[in-house]
Design a protein around this nucleic acid. Structure first.
Lengths: 207, 207
DNA sequence: TTTTTATTGACCATGCTGGTCGAAGTATGA
DNA sequence: TCATACTTCGACCAGCATGGTCAATAAAAA
């Protein structure tokens, strides 16, 4: 039962969750292996199935947990009051980065859950996931001060163009950094470059 | 031996290649199943291993073939003489679409090959693949008439921004069309929209 | 008819799967 | 000290899918 799991050593609990999230973030549900999970978590196979009745139960526990973490973060940290679109995107990028630093595997895990063709999660969870995606979308685009945009283009087109540009910038950065272990000091300079890039976007898309 | 395979009925040969490419485009090497391949190709298991000694040999044959097709297409159809960057991107998008229409699974297959972590292909093939990616990149960016660009931004930044915008546009379109079977007639209107979008980009990034 | 070639799919050893369970270890309490 | 309860382990299970083989057959050629 999950009860037994909840009253566990905090560190062992973390080890198990991390191992499981890691496994499920790298393989789709069917391919994810409970054997690898217990190995990485350094526990016996029996324990995992003592805490969680089935692989499926473990998976649902993880999805619920991941959603909880994300909901928490989004509610607390997203600044919907910022009317400047690009500034809002900046905040969102920072949030994303923070989450990534705090929970490296969480993003990929949720990504896998979304990708899953035949959804392995019960309807209630699926709906929470959907809602989160929806909310994330609207919180980025709603209540923006459109008057700042150049007015030879529809505002929604401008916002799309800005998002795509930022996305492209991010992808390029990730590709460039891939494999590198980046020193703390350098990080700041990456942010500075990013801010400069955002200023370029302002010059292009703002009045 | 491959010899036997080459002298095969053209239609059966195609059935086998298509089935194999399909399988390898949907699963990474290890997960791809020879059983599914022979089933889809409607041949006995024995035949596959009569034509190709091992799964690995089949895989290499397919990679070689895919590279050949792509090299052919790129050489014949890319217009490196077009100095207008956005027009060149337009051509590239059209080419991509044509290839996709002609060989739907080929793109995904090559994608899988590139993704493969521990490369399953011998060095010679890997180098050809690398070269193709390199060439594709340079053929897009080399010899462009930079004087058309607005001059308050470095030319390479402009080109990146344009590429990212087009990529974003494409992704959105694909997401929107996902699952729909699109009628021939509608396709033209999608292209029209795309051309209009390219004009917007010209307005933004050209003098 | 005989010989050669093309083709099949049942079969094999192997390896991994989610899940079980008896046993051994540890803590608690009398 | 002994007995009871709770953890923890990993060998083990049946099931399934894998890449690859090969004896048997069908088709074609001689």
């Amino acid at each position: 039962m999950v009860k037994a799991f909840e009253t566990l050593d905090e560190s062992k609990k973390k080890r198990i969750i991390d191992a499981a999230i890691h496994e499920f973030s790298e393989h789709p549900y069917e391919q994810a292996s409970t054997n690898r999970i217990v190995k990485e978590a350094r526990i016996g196979k029996g324990m995992l199935f003592h805490y969680f009745e089935t692989k499926q139960a473990l998976y649902e526990y993880l999805v619920d947990r991941a959603l909880r973490v994300m909901e928490e973060l989004y509610v607390h940290y997203i600044d919907v009051s910022e009317p400047d679109f690009i500034e809002r995107m900046k905040g969102s990028a920072k949030l994303k980065m923070d989450v990534y630093r705090l929970h490296p595997d969480l993003f990929n895990f949720i990504g896998q859950v979304v990708l899953e063709k035949e959804s392995k999660i019960p309807k209630a969870l699926a709906e929470r996931l959907e809602k989160m995606q929806q909310d994330g979308m609207t919180s980025l685009f709603k209540g923006v001060d459109l008057s700042k945009f150049r007015d030879d283009l529809p505002a929604d087109e401008v916002m799309k163009l800005i998002s795509w540009s930022i996305e492209g910038y991010g992808n390029e950065l990730v590709a460039k950094l891939d494999g590198q272990t980046f020193v703390e000091l350098e990080v700041d300079s990456y942010w500075d470059d990013f801010y400069a890039f955002l200023d370029v976007l302002k010059r292009i898309y703002y009045k």
